[in-house]
Design a protein around this nucleic acid. Structure first.
Lengths: 190, 190
DNA sequence: AGCTAATCTTTACATAGGTTAATTTTCTCC
DNA sequence: GGAGAAAATTAACCTATGTAAAGATTAGCT
């Protein structure tokens, strides 16, 4: 299991003193399957780190249909990043698909450490850059690849995950209906 | 016109000394319509700032079809951000759709200033965060909205732009074929 | 083990949107 | 201003994928 410490140091090493200050802000928290970490319409204040479990981030359309923007597994930060950054309300929800072990910190207490620890702000910069590059990649794949290709890529990148959560969540993550994913799987099996 | 100075200070103010060091790295550059700022397969080394003109960032599929990931207008940074960050080759191209006035700097000379000027690294962090939030928003819109809704949103956000560049570039930006955009426009006109 | 609810697949049908090609309209530049 | 190129529209056709509903399968209790 990748600890918060290793995860952070892997992005960009920081001083021992910075790590102490950061670590002190994170407290353990459990989520039960079905619990929400953030909810649309509310303003995010916390950032979480997944030690175990699976969380989906999803947006809701007006007809009530949902789109799974992302599936998070350990190790990974979660939270209403856009809301934390801009101060606007969340446009999305994050729901535990399994029981989860998290570490949770107040985001603004964390960002208050940037002045004291520029090496930590560097971590935040690199993280934001990596998030951006990942989003860019996903955007290209959503538009340029067929649903079947996206499914194959998904299986490659998150092996086993398709057996831990309902397929319709994966379909939504891939941007297709559960029916269509079922057809795709049938095709591949031949 | 929003200058580089104002653009940067608007994100997060920096010391006069930091601004001097940054500004010294940016040199004017003209692009003619049709010129490329970055090319896929090559590694990006430069970052640009658009003072005037329009640039499209696009990805190419295997069948040669293109997808306009983004349309840039002044004021805006351009460059192979993902490549600059990761050191991998560009997966995308950036092509001038009109003659352009840019300021261009070596990216690594710029990032070398982070140690000396933490206030500048803060600018970089906020910028990356804003980029990320924008991508997230675009991703949601691509998946949740119909092509017609995306077109209306585009007209609202970039008024007039549809009269400055070929419609098929806008269609590609919206993720539909030129034929389909034509149908959409016809529908709206009724 | 067996019951119930959840999930997955399949079928039938509808539609948005792709492709290709022909036609019309609009630019561009001599 | 006219010729040729570029862009936009239209028409014809096709396919991927959506929706709804019915069945089949699986999982989660008690």
């Amino acid at each position: 299991m990748v600890s918060l410490h290793n995860y952070v140091f892997n992005i960009s090493p920081i001083s021992e003193s910075a790590w102490q200050d950061i670590n002190a802000l994170f407290l353990p928290k459990q989520l039960r399957k079905g619990d929400y970490f953030i909810t649309e319409g509310k303003t995010a204040t916390q950032i979480g780190f997944i030690n175990s479990g699976i969380i989906r981030a999803f947006a809701k359309g007006r007809n009530g249909q949902e789109y799974n923007k992302h599936l998070f597994t350990a190790p990974s930060f979660i939270g209403g990043y856009a809301s934390l950054i801009t101060g606007n309300t969340n446009k999305i929800n994050q729901e535990a698909l399994t029981d989860c072990e998290l570490l949770v910190a107040d985001y603004h207490k964390l960002t208050a450490l940037y002045d004291k620890h520029p090496d930590f702000e560097r971590v935040a910069r690199k993280l934001a850059e990596l998030f951006f590059a990942a989003k860019e990649q996903r955007e290209i794949e959503l538009v340029m690849l067929s649903a079947e290709e996206r499914y194959l890529l998904f299986r490659e990148r998150m092996p086993g995950l398709e057996f831990e959560i309902p397929l319709y969540h994966i379909a939504s993550y891939l941007g297709v209906s559960a029916v269509q994913l079922s057809r795709i799987r049938k095709n591949l099996a031949r």
